[in-house]
Design a protein around this nucleic acid. Sequence first.
DNA 1: ACGATTAGATAGTAATACTATCCAATTCAG
DNA 2: CTGAATTGGATAGTATTACTATCTAATCGT
Lengths: 246, 246
Amino acid sequence: MNSFQVKEFLLRISQLAAVTDVPVATIKYYLRENLLHDGVLTSATQARYDDSHVRRLKLIRALVGTARLSVNAAREVLLSLDNPPESGHDLLGIAHQAVTPAVPDDVDVSGADALLDRWGWGADTCDRRTRAALVEALRGLSSAGFEPSAALLDRYAAAMRDIAEADVESVPMGSTEAAMQYVVLGTLLMEPVLLAMRRLAQQRASLDRFGAASIRSSNTDDAATPASLLRHRQFLGAAPPGPASR
Amino acid sequence: MNSFQVKEFLLRISQLAAVTDVPVATIKYYLRENLLHDGVLTSATQARYDDSHVRRLKLIRALVGTARLSVNAAREVLLSLDNPPESGHDLLGIAHQAVTPAVPDDVDVSGADALLDRWGWGADTCDRRTRAALVEALRGLSSAGFEPSAALLDRYAAAMRDIAEADVESVPMGSTEAAMQYVVLGTLLMEPVLLAMRRLAQQRASLDRFGAASIRSSNTDDAATPASLLRHRQFLGAAPPGPASR
DNA sequence: ACGATTAGATAGTAATACTATCCAATTCAG
DNA sequence: CTGAATTGGATAGTATTACTATCTAATCGT
């Protein structure tokens, strides 16, 4: 095999693995799981792959790695991209559903209806699953004893509306396919970006506000020593009656 | 004294399980894992639990369930809450570190320094791990062929700054402990709330923009049929260009 | 010709978050 | 007092997820 690119990029699986830095066994796994389309069989035991496989693998790794989708969720998203619905809006719905657990019909999901209506995100505009996800997240907060003020939630909602508008405005309308891909990736892959941004902004704001001592060393990673923290201290309900182990 | 609710709430483990709706075996697991402090032994084979255990269990469930922390990450956070550092700012750092994977010292983390400096989130104010998380998330985006414009990222950054300022401003300064709990829960448990909000806002904005057909039924959950979509349909792995099939 | 490579099938693994079982020591109901 | 129920503590088992590894027979490359 000479190193010049022959006609089209035709790769054997070991080369595909080398190019994408994904192990052969893992590629086979993605093939089995229908995340990745088959290569072209050149015989009973040989197949060739091309750059569509390279791109797809990168996409899979981004969804599974960066966006932390499960393989199942990633498959749903990818299959929708392969076989896109009529409107980009429907695709958005599919992307959202793929990453939002189903909610049985008999579960009450009206816990935040007042808020949702206030923000214009009621049942007439937004899907049930996603509303349920919000309700569930709010329930988690409050069961932990954290009750955010309506004002704070309003501010969050305003910021998120801003982001969502930026998202939608920046969708390239030239090509349907590009638009669809943009919507899905912009939704899913951007989430870790946004969360990281929030944390950075919090550190900044916290520093401004509290001046505060050292930031957990900006250069080292003194991988927290949980054991050393075991020295009891009563707080949220931690009254060590006896010594702990581990 | 009080005829109702005897002295203090003293529960046996089965009652604790009933009250919190967490199985006994799982409570024992949390005890073993040091997420939950021991009860008071009344004999070699009996112990009593009180409402501190109830609160703690709810907190554990919120962190592990709602905020999707691993048991290990939850333990780190909880131990920090039990034994809080001097400043709330440090606790923020600990909370962030607990949910952000460590980065070996030899990994380059400078990929977004220009952006970070622009936003005021440079190495002097923000910790390395969190900056690395942003770099990694951006890398995932771009390896999937998604290159957000600087303008879009700026807009995201502005929105996140807004949120972070709201976060920090709303920290109750009266009690150190309350403040600490607020910071941690506000960071971790609020993330799913924010992501759900963004999705709802996107659906709204998408509807406004694209008018579009039906939203994936606002009331039903026609639990997507992945199998039925298995009919392969070769789409391009990522980008529009390419001589590929389809 | 013949070692290297591959498809496809199947089996094994590591990590995670529980669940279940056991046993001896109580506790409690009658 | 007695026997059924409960518990702490230890240990083992399970379900799921996302891979990894092995094997076989066919085929490629040289």
